[in-house]
Simulated assay, not measured.
Amino acid sequence: MTMELCTKPRPEPTTAVDFRLDPELTAGLLDELTRLWTDVSNTGGAVGFPGRVTYDEVRPETDRYARTVAEGRHRLLAGFDGAGRLRATAFLGFNTHRLQDHFAWVTTVMVDPALQGGGHGRALLAAVEEHARALGLEALKLTCRGGTGLEHFYASCGYQEVGRVPGGLRVSADDYRDDIMMWLPLH
């Protein structure tokens, strides 16, 4: 699933990544997810933690996602390399309110730091969009941390900024960042 839906051309990925929706959440995959999340966080990725983290700090969040996947509240889109190693993720989070069940949240968008800058983020978002359409969704919504430039990346993939809460995220005692909301219509 390498359908190119982003508006900006991407470099040809140097490592092939195969995206799969709903892989079995085995103990091994949960371990890989925790390690990926730890690595992304510790190399500056804005994926829910304010700074450096340990495996043991991330694991409870991984387990929380596993529970919400089992309950049907989230779906995991996972990218695997040719050796079967987890290299990228995004979760689709579903709304339960009837006025918002036409869109899903895109959360925990991660690409292995060793692969970043090689077009895998764009390929991941294209796969998210493809699966969202197949699920009958009309739009996708995500948030990103200000001060990272991620809003520009998401905008280049078709998302538009639709809201911003100045200082809505506290990264540390003296570091507040904007909480930026992005929206992608799928029609």
Rank of each mutant, 00 (worst) to 15 (best):
P13K: 10
V111I: 10
S156F: 07
T107N: 10
P11C: 10
T26R: 00
F91R: 10
F153G: 05
V47N: 07
V58I: 10
G84A: 03
H102G: 14
E138F: 13
A155C: 08
G136V: 12
D39W: 09
H152L: 14
E12D: 08
H187D: 15
D178N: 02
L92E: 00
P13S: 10
T2K: 13
Y55I: 05
V47S: 07
P11R: 10
L77I: 04
L184Y: 05
A88Y: 04
L21E: 05
T38N: 03
G146I: 06
R177V: 05
F94R: 07
P166W: 01
V165Y: 11
E12V: 11
R170Q: 13
A155R: 14
S41Y: 05
G146N: 13
Y176P: 07
T107M: 14
G117M: 08
L99D: 12
H74C: 07
V109W: 10
L135N: 11
G167E: 08
A70T: 05
G136Q: 14
G79S: 00
G44L: 10
G79Q: 00
Q100R: 15
F80D: 00
V69I: 13
Y176W: 15
R122T: 15
R73S: 02
L21H: 06
C157W: 03
E130H: 11
Q160D: 12
D63A: 08
A173G: 13
T38Y: 03
F80Y: 04
G118H: 03
E151I: 02
R35S: 12
D112A: 09
R59W: 11
T43F: 02
T2C: 09
C144Q: 07
